[in-house]
């Protein structure tokens, strides 16, 4: 299942002669309904975060961001994504290279398997690691003997995050590299390019913007994952609380302003992600028109 389908809006399809277009009135009505729907479902929730966050004033807003628990949650979120995102980025490049540059049997099965984490409920994504490493899990007793803690600690949170964000970079790169074919790389090999140099000088320049978007999207998901992390974290304040979990705790304690203030940080992250996407699409359309 696609986590993100990149679709370019081209001007061409919206230039239509009158006889295969709707009348002006119908067009206005349809546009109005579409915008009303988006306002209700997407724009209002977005605004609500800032309105509720700033309800009790700027001081309460900044104070809730400077709170010690919020800061430690932010720190943990950053650490987790700093580990998870590079791991999945490296995997994504390897997988896309294997799948798009070579023909082999079971290629489509492999692509489906890479998509698998998209089909798994976040709660189950956490559960599987509890089953493996939890106190009653398969490796629980062994880990206990060696005094290693995975569940309710950083490694568990990282594992669950890696699982949930597993397909993002690969998913972004596979269609891109597939469409570019292998001619350039083959030419480079004939000219004597080897291994890493080939990737670095020939492939990377072609895929860098798609790769950047894949990484940014993977990062947004890593920082925002809630369900899976909630299962493995144990919710220990100041220790195993990530930003989304901190939002939940504050909300359940009726500290709404603080909860929305922390939420607004993650909204900014989402907006930044979308801005990068727009930029990458813009680069892509420029590249195509060249």
């Amino acid at each position: 299942m696609a986590g993100a389908v990149t679709a370019h809006l081209s001007e061409e399809a919206s230039v239509r002669p009158q006889h295969i277009n709707e009348s002006v009135l119908v067009r206005i009505v349809l546009i109005t309904i579409a915008l009303a729907f988006l306002t209700l479902v997407v724009i209002f929730p977005l605004l609500t975060v800032f309105i509720e966050g700033l309800k009790k004033g700027w001081d309460v807003y900044t104070a809730s961001l400077r709170d010690a628990d919020a800061l430690s949650a932010l720190k943990l979120t950053l650490i987790v994504s700093l580990i998870a995102v590079p791991l999945n980025t490296f995997f994504g490049i390897m997988a896309a290279w294997a799948i798009t540059k070579f023909k082999f049997r079971g290629r489509n099965v492999l692509i489906t398997l890479i998509d698998l984490p998209f089909a798994v409920s976040p709660v189950i994504s956490g559960l599987i690691f509890v089953l493996m490493f939890g106190a009653q899990g398969f490796y629980g007793p062994w880990l206990d003997d060696h005094n290693i803690q995975i569940i309710f600690a950083l490694p568990g949170i990282v594992l669950a995050t890696v699982f949930v964000t597993f397909p993002f970079v690969a998913r972004e790169l596979i269609p891109l590299m597939e469409s570019q074919g292998v001619q350039e790389e083959e030419a480079a090999v004939v000219l004597g390019a080897k291994g890493l140099k080939l990737f670095w000088l020939v492939t990377l320049p072609n895929i860098k913007w798609g790769l950047l978007y894949g990484i940014i999207l993977c990062n947004a998901r890593a920082m925002g994952e809630f369900g899976a992390v909630s299962v493995v974290s144990g919710h220990i304040r100041g220790e195993t609380n990530t930003l989304p979990l901190h939002i939940e705790i504050l909300y359940n304690e009726y500290q709404f302003s603080a909860s929305f203030a922390v939420s607004s940080l993650l909204v900014l992250l989402a907006v930044l992600t979308l801005a990068v996407k727009k930029f990458v699409e813009w680069r892509g359309s420029k590249w195509q028109s060249k």
């Binding site: 239509r16 929730p45 977005l46 609500t48 976040p122 989304p244 989402a270 801005a275």
Partner: peptide
């Protein structure tokens, strides 16, 4: 198919649910 002001912005907005953490969507 149609042209209207702010179209590019609306197009970006459609992706927001992908990028926004689910917990934030929930509380909001």
């Amino acid at each position: 198919r149609y042209k209207f002001p702010g179209k590019s912005f609306i197009d970006s907005l459609v992706d927001l649910p992908f990028a926004l953490p689910t917990a934030v969507a929930g509380v909001s």
